[in-house]
Write a protein that binds this DNA or RNA. Structure first.
Lengths: 207, 207
DNA sequence: TACTGTGAAAAACTTCACAGCC
DNA sequence: GGCTGTGAAGTTTTTCACAGTA
């Protein structure tokens, strides 16, 4: 599918709309207007309509959107209609929390491989997944894993990323607080927990 | 300190500049130009200068910025020059990983209290911090804790937030995937790990 | 010379307003 | 009547270009 130039912010919001729609779907609600969806997510209605209009016309004037149908359209746009096997690299505190995180499955995102460089951890089995040595990363291409979650210490992050990229990984969710150099064909989304927390005091009332 | 209207994105970037400056400082580098800092963080030089110019003139034409001095200015702007006591609510997988997360301390952010509603966890001591019952949240004001990290399940998040707000908390780093209703005086920053990961497949090459 | 600080220009994004359709 | 889809207007943010300074 080929669309025009889409703002990155639109893609970010699309995954938020999806979160809202999944909720409505589970509540058994079948139809929703842009106003009602906006209210649930604290966003604004024309933006939802504009964002969706980049990709097509999914609603019915006078009625709104069918929840299930719109959900599937967004899944198509975000390429979430088939399951994506994902590798988790780094099985420390954060890594093991992420492995148990239940939030990924509604999006069809499955952690199917775990890597670490600590021999004390290698070979352990968690939920049927065995922790493998990082040297095995090179097999990811063969195993058709193109997404990775990076939860290693900052000083190992670039080196590990290079290995992942060489092994054919094309998307990285990075938890290390630094800029990762990657070829253009690879997308990195960084979650920097500490700098996010560090923004909060700014908004505290003076005194 | 009273500044003009500052874009939220500027504040976000400021905490990133700080990350870069902390790195340079530890490397013993004393001076940096906007170009050099931009390179290290993969940002662009005029934006750094513009962002800083909202708050004052911290550099020297022809030379650049003194790393330590600029670091302190940014700390002042973000109110990070004194330590902020922070409460962690939810001591599950994610919560316990966050308690051990080493990245907060360079920003002067200290987790000093941990709450959970699971009696099996209450009373446990980790790094000298005892897990307390969520009912104790009401004492936060007395303890001068105005920041909280929320790592509870989505279905408990709003209710817990209400308690935090009532107890005087003014900033929340939220890991639950939903929009939290709070009074205007309270700032919420949400990290939604699953919807972030869910954006990656969009960028995968077709096929 | 080399770099900052900044008004002005450009670009990007959001919001509006309404024609068109159910 | 009510809601979508969208071109156009409005707003915000980013980038530029250069005057000014150490």
């Amino acid at each position: 599918m080929r669309y025009g130039r889409i703002p990155d912010e639109t893609i970010r919001r699309l995954s938020t709309y999806m979160r809202g729609l999944v909720g409505l779907f589970h509540e058994g609600i079948e139809k929703v207007s842009s106003t009602a969806l906006a209210e649930a997510l604290h966003m604004n209605p024309p933006q939802i309509r504009k964002d969706l209009s980049y990709f097509g016309a999914f609603g019915t004037p006078g009625v709104g959107y069918e929840v299930e149908k719109l959900l599937n359209h967004i899944k198509d746009i975000l390429k979430l209609n088939n399951t994506h096997s994902t590798a988790l690299v780094g099985f420390g505190n954060l890594g093991s929390a992420l492995l148990k995180y239940p939030g990924f499955s509604p999006y069809g995102l499955d952690i199917v491989a775990v890597f670490d460089d600590d021999s004390a951890k290698i070979g352990k089995k968690i939920n049927g997944i065995e922790v493998e040595d990082v040297s095995r990363i090179k097999d990811l291409e063969k195993r058709e894993i193109r997404l990775a979650i990076l939860a290693v210490p900052a000083n190992a992050a670039q080196e590990t990323t290079d290995k992942l990229v060489e092994a054919g990984v094309r998307g990285v969710l990075n938890f290390a607080p630094l800029y990762l150099k990657v070829p253009k064909k690879v997308k990195v989304i960084t979650i920097d927990i500490a700098t996010d927390l560090a923004r909060l005091p700014y908004y505290l009332p003076a005194g």
